[in-house]
């Protein structure tokens, strides 16, 4: 029995606000609880999402001073921005290709490493488990700017830690941040350092979620370790794979801070460190081509949604 039926029975004819409230608050309160979210969502997400769409067909000709009401002077350009981005703009294409290379590089390399590490950490009698959990999470919660600065030192040509380590192995050091060819490998190394351990914690959580009796039953039925792993463990890890791949790909296409810092607010030698969000930032906030930047934002959104959709579709196939 709920409270408002009790009060309703007491005084059915009362019209005071207090009474109405005590009778109906359970119906109204969820909207009040949701109000902060809905308000900020409407003002700071829905409206700007629409505005960005509108802006992506415009050219920003100038800015109106806040004292005169603010806003911008626009010129309608139709599909010009999109057409230019998709057919003429070589830098945009470079940024997308770099984003894709980084995405596939980090995701494909980190998955086996992270899964392997998780399997080790999940094995019985393994030591350093607590230490490993701590260490593997630390890069993820460290600011991208701090990570960028640390790796600026590590990737130095002559005095860098990485090249020093290579030379003790008898290998020639390379210009990680100065040679076009090695910029992407350097960034992937940085990405692996940041996300491998983090993802291994997700795999570990997934592994701990696999019911032991199921594995036990399969073993009693004569399945060997590899078969148990392939037919029981891996299917149970499906949601973790989905998570790791999708967040990895989205994160890669959103990369900004680390390359921005490594290449001194630039895009690296020959644009080798240029990423889509960086390009959006340069266009919108350094060249003030805000219509063009909005079009970049929308194309990027479409790409990210397509990737996510494709992934979900592929993983759904796997379930069958």
């Amino acid at each position: 029995m709920s409270a408002h039926t009790l009060t309703a029975g007491d005084k059915p004819q009362s019209l005071s606000i207090g009474d109405w409230w005590s009778r109906n608050q359970r119906k109204v309160i969820p909207y009040i609880f949701l109000a902060p979210f809905l308000l900020t969502f409407l003002i700071f997400t829905v409206y700007p999402a629409g505005a960005a769409f509108f802006l992506s067909f415009q050219r920003v000709r100038g800015f109106i001073d806040a004292s005169e009401g603010g806003g911008v002077v626009l010129e309608y350009k139709g599909l010009d921005n999109y057409e230019r981005l998709l057919t003429k703009d070589k830098r945009f294409r470079t940024a997308i290709i770099n984003g894709a290379e980084f995405a596939f590089g980090t995701v494909l390399i980190q998955m086996p490493i992270a899964l392997g590490m998780a399997l080790l950490m999940n094995a019985p009698h393994i030591r350093f488990k607590v230490l490993a959990r701590l260490a593997f999470f630390a890069p993820y919660i460290t600011s991208a700017i701090v990570v960028g600065w640390i790796f600026t030192l590590i990737f130095q040509d002559r005095y860098g830690l990485l090249n020093a380590a290579l030379s003790t192995l008898g290998l020639e050091g390379v210009g990680w941040l100065t040679n076009k060819t090695f910029v992407m490998p350097a960034l992937i190394i940085l990405g692996l350092w940041t996300w491998c351990g983090y993802n291994s914690l997700f795999f570990l959580a997934g592994l701990q979620n696999v019911p032991d009796d199921l594995k036990e039953a399969a073993r009693i039925d004569g399945a060997n370790t590899i078969r148990v792993f392939w037919h029981i463990t891996i299917p149970f890890l499906r949601p973790v794979f989905v998570f790791v791949v999708i967040t990895g790909l989205i994160g890669s296409f959103s990369l900004f801070s680390q390359p921005y810092l490594l290449f001194d607010s630039g895009s690296g030698p020959g644009d080798a460190g240029l990423f889509p969000v960086m390009y959006l930032f340069f266009m919108g906030f350094e060249n003030f081509r805000m219509g063009y930047a909005s079009a970049i934002g929308y194309l990027l959104t479409v790409i990210i949604l397509l990737i996510t959709g494709l992934q979900l579709f592929l993983f759904r196939l796997w379930r069958v």
Binding site: F44, T45, Y47, P48, A49, A51, A52, L55, I250, F253, S254, V277, L280, F281, G284, F285, M290, A293, S294, G297, Y298, L300, T301, I304, L305, T308
Partner: peptide
């Protein structure tokens, strides 16, 4: 699912 970057300019 909406990437924040698309909102940067209008925001």
């Amino acid at each position: 699912t909406l990437p924040f970057q698309v909102l940067l300019v209008p925001l």
